[in-house]
């Protein structure tokens, strides 16, 4: 592994996003407002149906703010890198990435890791703190839970990367990735549990939603945060669920990348 190279790429990804301070401030504002709206909606819902999906009111409110904090970190509504990658494929700038002595997927993964880390600090912490000031929601039991939560977030972010990377790869064949992006966006919005926790989904739909990869991105980290996994084995199971999806989807991304670089035309110029 070329740790130093990819560490440099990740650091670059972090600093690139850090240069856009106004965008970060605007994002924090949007997340906070959206969090307030969702909070009041959830309060109304949980007033009617206490313990819905096994969550108390405090759990539900924590869930809202975790969601707001992770929107960009775990790419719930778009991975935050796929538009750039699709644009590079469409314009042919991807040629520059391809001749480099570096692996395309590892390169973008590292860059995205840097981006996620910045988003966690820049756009995750503040809305969560604001939410905690306004509402009295559940906080993790202790530092161990915080740590376990961060591991789940890292895994969730990896699954998110893998999904959006696959989406971006489709641009090699479709040339215009917008259609696929729209579908992935809608799928992510619904199946990540961004609008409503997945454990609230009824029957077969709920069963399905909880085993799809999008569950790794918000539902699993939130449940880790809320301490819903009793004991080490359950927690390990949750990590394994995320890890398996990460491996499968990263593998699919590699296969798509190999097929693309082998036979697909690099556009333009």
């Amino acid at each position: 592994m070329r740790t130093r190279l990819y560490a440099t790429v990740a650091a670059g990804g972090f600093r690139r996003h850090a240069t856009y301070r106004v965008a970060t401030a605007a994002g924090v504002f949007t997340n906070t407002v959206f969090g307030l709206i969702l909070s009041y909606t959830y309060i109304a819902l949980w007033d009617e149906r206490p313990q819905l999906g096994g969550y108390s009111m405090d759990d539900a409110l924590a869930y809202v703010w975790i969601g707001q904090a992770l929107i960009t970190v775990c790419g719930l509504m778009g991975g935050g890198f796929e538009e750039e990658l699709i644009e590079r494929i469409r314009t042919g700038d991807i040629a520059v990435d391809l001749y480099r002595p570096a692996d395309l997927q590892a390169w973008w993964f590292s860059a995205n890791l840097g981006r996620s880390a910045y988003q966690l600090l820049g756009r995750g912490v503040v809305p969560m703190a604001v939410g905690a000031l306004v509402f009295d929601f559940t906080l993790p039991a202790g530092p161990g839970t915080w740590l376990a939560f961060l591991v789940a977030v890292a895994l969730g972010s990896t699954v998110s990367f893998a999904i959006w990377y696959l989406v971006a790869m489709s641009a090699f064949w479709l040339l215009d990735g917008q259609g696929v992006v729209q579908v992935a966006w809608l799928g992510g919005l619904f199946f990540s549990g961004m609008l409503l926790p997945l454990n609230v989904f009824p029957g077969a739909l709920g069963e399905l939603a909880r085993v799809l990869p999008w569950a790794s991105m918000l539902q699993v980290p939130a449940d880790v945060y809320l301490g819903k996994y009793a004991g080490g084995w359950q927690l390990a199971g949750a990590y394994a669920f995320q890890g398996c999806w990460a491996l499968v989807l990263l593998g699919a991304g590699r296969a798509a990348q190999a097929a693309a670089t082998r036979k697909v035309v690099v556009q333009g110029g």
Binding site: T8, R16, V96, Y99, R100
Partner: peptide
Amino acid sequence: VVFGQRTTLWWDLPLKDSYGLMHRM
């Protein structure tokens, strides 16, 4: 390789950062 109409440099970052990247790459 230099593609005149494309760039290998990090768009948002200072020029020297891209050179540091080449160093590692």
